[in-house]
Amino acid sequence: MPTAREALLDAALGALAHRPWSAVRMADLATTARVSRQTLYNEFGSKEGLARALVRREADAYLQGVRRLLAAPAPPERNLVVVAEWIVTRAATRPVLRALLTGAWNERLPAPRPARPGARPAAVPAQRRADEGPPAPGELVAATAACAGERWAAGCELAVRLALSHVVAPAVPLPTGPGEAGQCEEPDSWSPITPTMTRLIETILSVETTSPRKIIP
């Protein structure tokens, strides 16, 4: 059974799927999570504190997922490809994570600002950590690479950056019908990742992780 804090964060994430953050009401979240409003404010302090906690949880869950995939009993190169595929797929369905990884926040999402300088520290330890603010995209990429250990950190960072290039500019089916060439309409949907993208990641990682390093004078 989730704790009150987790239930409230789940309620906030669920509400965010249907309305912009500015329209999310604290009272509604407390009702959905079946806790009192006082419990909500005891945990997060304010709606801004809740936003910081929600963003921090997305970052933590992302890094936990990366560690789990990298620990799989498979060749490290293959695990890096799996991580890249997972990042693209997860970012496609989780707007907060996508914004964390790319820095592309919009008005529908909670503003990722740290607590005001000089503000009273939160009573809840998890909230004190959240109030420090979310990691910047570069910091999150570095933390992802660190999950792979020193031997594979560079390859992991490369895999992440290749995945993020697809997150920012996803592949869409090219027009094939008569008279469709040159159209620039927004697609109804797009594949989170394509076989071509997977092969590209595999090829680049293979070269990067097996070729001897060249020192340029």
Score class of each variant (00 low, 15 high):
S206G: 15
T32F: 06
V88Y: 03
M26N: 11
G49F: 10
P117L: 05
A142V: 12
T144D: 11
V81F: 06
W190P: 06
A4L: 02
E43W: 02
R94G: 02
A72Y: 00
R120A: 12
L140G: 12
A15D: 10
S211I: 04
R161W: 10
R108N: 13
S206E: 15
S191H: 13
M197A: 08
I87D: 05
W190I: 03
I215P: 00
A74L: 11
P212W: 09
S211A: 07
A130Y: 08
L109Y: 13
T39D: 02
R19C: 07
A163R: 00
G14A: 03
A61N: 07
M1H: 09
K214S: 02
L205T: 05
G155N: 07
E139S: 11
A115P: 12
R151M: 08
V207S: 09
S36C: 05
R128S: 06
A111C: 07
L200V: 01
P173E: 09
L40G: 05
E202K: 00
G179C: 05
A169R: 13
A145N: 14
P75R: 00
D28H: 12
T198P: 00
T196L: 09
P178C: 06
M1Y: 08
L70C: 03
P192K: 14
L63R: 10
G118D: 10
L162P: 04
P121A: 11
E48M: 11
A71M: 04
W105R: 09
A59R: 09
C156V: 04
S206T: 12
R199S: 04
T209G: 00
G49E: 06
A126F: 03
R90K: 10
A15S: 09
L50Y: 03
R57E: 08
T198M: 00
L40Y: 06
A169I: 15
L109C: 11
E202S: 10
R120G: 05
R129T: 11
E48F: 09
R52L: 12
A84L: 04
S46N: 00
V83G: 01
L164A: 07
L97K: 05
W152V: 09
E180I: 01
T3N: 08
T3F: 08
V172E: 11
P2N: 10
I204R: 07
P73F: 07
C147D: 07
L205W: 08
E150V: 11
L54F: 02
V81E: 04
E6S: 10
V66E: 04
Y41C: 04
W190E: 10
V24C: 12
C147G: 01
P117C: 08
L70W: 01
A71H: 07
V81M: 04
W21P: 15
R129Q: 14
V96Y: 11
R98Q: 15
E48K: 14
A92G: 05
L54K: 05
G65Q: 10
R34Y: 00
S36W: 06
A59Y: 02
P2V: 02
R52E: 05
E186Q: 03
A111E: 12
W190G: 09
A23K: 14
A4E: 06
V66F: 01
L16P: 14
A84R: 01
